[in-house]
């Protein structure tokens, strides 16, 4: 490995982040555009476009490989605005607490058990 690759300067790191963010925004907007004809959400269309680009290139460009994992590790942050909506429905949630507990917690855990057991069995034999 060349030393310039392991210790890129601050300027290079900044440019790499700008390039990666531009790619993500561009691909996401293309995905949104495609959603008008393909009945899939923009994010899923976007994942397929980017995946297709990587497959065509035969590799992931270095700047993307170095930056995207850093963003993905902080994905939780970006859910917060949507989750704050819990506050707006607190009366409804209190009224329906039992049905919600069963429907959200009970069935989620049940489905997780089924998927975990099944995938464990299927993948073990491979």
């Amino acid at each position: 490995m060349q030393p310039t690759h392991s210790h890129p300067s601050r300027g290079v790191i900044f440019l790499e982040h700008c390039a990666s963010i531009a790619v993500l925004l561009g691909v996401f907007e293309c995905g949104a555009l495609l959603s008008q004809w393909i009945p899939l959400p923009a994010t899923i269309n976007g994942v397929f476009i980017l995946l297709g680009l990587f497959v065509v290139l035969g590799q992931v460009p270095g700047f993307i490989r170095r930056t995207i994992p850093q963003y993905l590790s902080h994905m939780s942050l970006f859910f917060v605005p949507a989750i704050m909506a819990v506050w707006l429905f607190q009366d409804d949630v209190i009224t329906h607490w039992l049905s919600l507990l069963l429907a959200l917690v009970g069935t989620t855990i049940l489905s997780m058990v089924v998927v975990m057991w099944l995938s464990h069995r299927l993948l073990k034999s491979s």
Partner: peptide, 9 residues
């Protein structure tokens, strides 16, 4: 949205 697209990696 754009961040979710990064899951392609």
């Amino acid at each position: 949205g754009p961040l979710t697209v990064g899951l392609a990696l």
